Computed example of a mutant assay.
Amino acid sequence: MKHINQLLGTAFALMVTASSYACNLKAQESTNTTLITSTVAEKPAKQYVKIALLLDTSNSMDGLINQAKAQLWDIVNEFTHAKCGNDSRPLLQIALYEYGNDNLSAREGYIRQVLGFSDDLDEISEKLFSLTTNGGEEYCGEVIHTSLKQLEWGKNADDLKMIFIAGNEPFDQGKLNYKDATTNAKEKDVIVNTIFCGNYEQGINTHWKSGAILTGGDYMAIDHNRQVVHIATPYDDIIIQLNAKLNNTYVSYGSVGYAKKELQAVQDANAAELEEAVVVKRAVSKSSRLYKNSQWDLVDAVEDDEAVLSKLDEKDLPSELKGKSKKEITEYISLKKEEREKIQKEIQELNSKREMYIAEHQKEEAGELENAMLSAIKAQASKKNYKWD
């Protein structure tokens, strides 16, 4: 990528990694003195994968919403293995819009931002489960334009910025021309991918393919009502049990800590309502680097910044840590971190066996929506030197 190449070209003998600083120490000797200059390089700018999901929530879209709920975790798990061109790991952010629902404001074009860009996986799950369907007007051009205007897309040319819009009505409905919206997207380096829920040729005839190719995106047609068949494996129950143990390693703190810990449990329950396999996939996501909760969990917070403990008031601590010395709190957090890492490693190892079992018993388990999104993501990511290990 061009930014990485520039960085390497100007920082002679500097090794860039995703998680550490490097120093370029250069010694110059003269007859009488030795001059040593040191330069501490800044960490490379974080790279993001930013995905905005624009979902039609009119009456006929219940199947689409259910697929999104179930397959969120497959998409997250896939990104666990993504690497940027400099071998760093990109951060994943997801935003969510709904459109085409009579319960939404006509003045706003029957469009609502459900969630701005977020890396809080529990919050993303919560918002997906909050969606309900109702008849309405579906204005694709307007919802694309709105997401481009409202979201913080950033200006890093190395970020992968994508819109996935899914629906089943003509793409050219509404006052705002979809061609103008996609032109705006292209100017912001945002790729628009369109997912027509219905017959492939019908989607082409109603401009869904045109809406994608204008930004170099992919056009896809899916059966949004297809029931995804999950393969049960001998490892599922063990992973679910480990997930419960994993939850016990979270140490909530601050004003939002208790509510966020409750949300974690609620989203586990929401996954269980769909199917046991969804709980397993969510547990795998929770064992990955993308499940970070520094804003409410002391283990993650201390890992990010050890000084956080000295900044906390007694009232911000959970009951089990009130009245404890800083040393006792530090030891407690360290033990929880060690316990968590052990559980996460077990889940990852079991998931590797689980994936092998699924591969042996069925060639493909992925759902329609997931297949469509991952195919587009990998193809478009490769153009920015992203890769998977």
Rank of each mutant, 00 (worst) to 15 (best):
Asp180Ser: 14
Met162Phe: 02
Gly167Ser: 05
Glu187Val: 09
Leu148Met: 14
Asn177Trp: 05
Ala157Gly: 09
Gly154Asn: 08
Leu160Gly: 05
Asn168Leu: 03
Glu169Val: 00
Ala157Leu: 11
Leu151Asn: 13
Glu169His: 06
Glu169Pro: 01
Lys186Asp: 11
Ala185Pro: 10
Asp158Met: 11
Lys155Asp: 15
Ala166His: 00
Gly198Phe: 07
Lys149Ala: 11
Leu148Trp: 05
Phe196Gln: 10
Leu151Gly: 15
Asp189Tyr: 08
Trp153Asn: 10
Val190Ala: 08
Leu176Ile: 06
Met162Asn: 01
Gln150Gly: 08
Gly174Met: 04
Gly154Val: 10
Lys149Tyr: 13
Tyr178Pro: 04
Ile165Gln: 02
Leu160Trp: 05
Thr183Lys: 15
Ile165Gly: 02
Pro170Arg: 05
Lys161Glu: 08
Lys179Pro: 08
Leu160Ile: 05
Ala157Thr: 12
Asn184Pro: 06
Ala157Lys: 13
Asp189Glu: 15
Ala166Met: 02
Phe164Leu: 00
Val192Ile: 12
Met162His: 01
Ile165His: 01
Phe171Pro: 01
Gly174Gln: 02
Pro170Asp: 03
Ala185Thr: 03
Gly174Thr: 10
Val190Pro: 10
Gly198Val: 08
Asn177Asp: 15
Gly174Val: 06
Asp172Pro: 00
Asn177Gly: 08
Asn177Gln: 09
Leu160Tyr: 04
Gly154Met: 11
Asp189Lys: 14
Ile191Trp: 05
Asn177Cys: 08
Leu151Glu: 11
Lys179Gly: 06
Ala185Lys: 12
Gly174Asn: 10
Leu148Lys: 11
Gly154Tyr: 03
Met162Asp: 00
Lys175Phe: 06
Leu151Cys: 12
Leu176Trp: 10
Cys197His: 09
Ala181Ile: 04
Trp153Gln: 11
Ile165Lys: 00
Val192Gly: 07
Tyr178Glu: 09
Asp158Lys: 10
Ala181Phe: 07
Lys188Ile: 00
Glu152Ala: 14
Leu176His: 11
Asp189Arg: 08
Gly198Arg: 02
Lys161Tyr: 01
Ala181Pro: 07
Asn184Glu: 13
Glu187Asn: 12
Thr194Val: 00
Asn177Leu: 10
Asp159Cys: 07
